[in-house]
């Protein structure tokens, strides 16, 4: 039981809790507490040290918007943003409740009349913006994966195609999202005409495609390397068994390259998340990037604190995304490294 739990914790990257489980299972507590101190206590002390240094030095820096906020001020701002979100959600619920009552009343008075139903038009709260950013980054990331994995497979299997595409990869890989954005914006504007009932905003499509363009390279390169470095002996097994092309790809080549593919996808998602913030700032896609930009333009006394909240949010979400991908990578590498 405890072994299975430890295996799960290791697989999911939650290794901090392993010593606790071991203590509960009755292993030598002194050793485990030492372990616990090493993997949990040391980072905690480092974080406390960082917070101390931050709060000490922040007040020394003066900007046009006042001094840089310390940790406590940022925490206040974070709570304020959450409060704002809750009030806004309550307003929205009230609005729909009122609308429902209005509709009922109008139907009673005149059953044939067409009743107008309007969606709530409140402002985006901070939590909404986090949601938009996540949705945008995943759309871009999934598009990137759909392009990069098949292309990587082809590159890995055919040295000629690999040689043909490699220079293009090397040239496009280092291009900054800020350089792609104007081109993507123009192309999207020309190709995608929005109406009132379009599914997606232009700004959303622009940001997502920019994320795709910048984040597909790690997956592409890793897939190609993974496929190219497959054990030739296993390929020969497939040949001797006279497996069809499709079967060879799906049963031998892809499973063998899967750890590489997942490593690539993990890197891609990291790049995508970083790129997204810049893309949203410029494309005015209502996400975290736009939030930062708006606060910067706004220039009130709270702005710096709110931007800090955004910075920390971006960091924490990036960390969580990486952990999720790492877990997936571990699960799909099962039977090899583990």
């Amino acid at each position: 039981m405890s072994n299975q739990l430890i295996k799960f914790l290791n697989l999911s990257g939650l290794t901090w809790f392993v010593p606790l489980v071991k203590i509960a299972a009755g292993e030598n507590p002194t050793i485990q507490i030492r372990q616990l101190f090493l993997i949990m206590g040391v980072p905690l002390i480092a974080i406390l040290f960082f917070l101390g240094a931050w709060s000490f030095s922040a007040s020394k820096v003066h900007t046009s918007l006042g001094t840089i906020p310390g940790p406590s001020a940022v925490w206040e701002e974070a709570l304020g943003l959450l409060d704002e979100h809750n009030t806004e959600k309550k307003k929205e619920a009230d609005y729909y409740l009122r609308q429902e009552e209005r509709v009922k009343k109008e139907k009673l008075e005149n059953p044939t009349a067409e009743v107008k139903i309007r969606p709530y038009n409140g402002k985006n709260t901070y939590v909404d913006q986090i949601g938009t950013s996540l949705f945008t980054v995943f759309t871009g990331f999934i598009l990137a994966t759909l392009v990069a994995v098949p292309l990587g497979l082809v590159c890995g299997m055919s040295p000629i195609i690999n040689t043909a595409i490699n220079p293009l990869i090397q040239i496009f890989k280092p291009v900054s999202p800020l350089a792609w954005l104007p081109i993507v914006t123009l192309v999207v504007s020309a190709a995608y005409v929005t109406t009132d009932d379009s599914w997606f905003e232009k700004s959303f499509i622009t940001s997502a495609i920019t994320v795709t363009l910048c984040s597909l390279w790690p997956t592409l390169i890793n897939t190609a390397v993974g496929v190219a470095s497959i054990d030739k002996d296993l390929v020969n097994v497939g040949k001797v068994l006279r497996l069809s092309w499709g079967t060879q790809i799906s049963k031998i080549i892809i499973p063998s390259a899967l750890p590489y593919i997942f490593t690539g996808m993990r890197l891609s998602l990291g790049v995508g998340w970083m790129v997204l913030i810049a893309a949203e700032m410029l494309a005015q896609n209502p996400g975290l990037g736009k939030f930062v930009w708006d606060e910067f333009q706004n220039g009130s006394s709270d702005s710096l604190g709110r931007i800090m909240v955004a910075v920390l949010t971006i960091g924490v979400i990036g960390f969580i995304l990486d952990r999720v991908m790492q877990t997936l990578q571990n699960i799909f590498s099962f039977g090899r490294a583990l």
């Binding site: 296993l234 006279r242 049963k251 899967l258 039977g335 090899r336």
Partner: peptide
């Protein structure tokens, strides 16, 4: 085409 069974020197089983 004939069916050929080949037992390699290494077992070459697919680990997954």
């Amino acid at each position: 085409t004939p069916n050929i069974g080949y037992i390699f020197q290494n077992p070459r089983l697919l680990p997954w």
